[in-house]
């Protein structure tokens, strides 16, 4: 990072999350995109941050409540008679 302490890079990093989420005004977006064109390191940080978020979402989508966990939950809540209804 020692060769990467330009003020522009630090400004970009501060706005990176909002840039990824699309919450920035157009003029600031253009400024960021202009910087990204000329800065390899910031492009890497952007690409890998986006990918990090994607990767964390993908396995989570597969995680549902296991059948035995659901059964124990319904019993604990005295909802046993609803266990077999369609989810």
């Amino acid at each position: 990072m020692s060769d990467h302490l330009h003020k522009n890079c630090q400004d970009l990093l501060g706005s990176l999350s909002e840039y990824i989420d699309g919450g920035l005004p157009p003029d600031l977006c253009r400024e960021i995109e202009k910087h990204l064109e000329g800065c390899d390191n910031c492009r890497v940080v952007l690409n890998t941050t986006r990918r990090t978020i994607d990767l964390m979402q993908i396995p989570a989508e597969e995680e549902t409540v296991p059948t035995d966990v659901r059964e124990r939950l319904f019993k604990r809540l005295n909802l046993d008679d609803y266990l077999n209804r369609q989810k």
Partner: peptide, 11 residues
């Protein structure tokens, strides 16, 4: 925030 340290593009 701490500054980034690894600049390898594995994406």
């Amino acid at each position: 925030s701490p500054l980034p340290e690894v600049f390898v593009d594995w994406s």
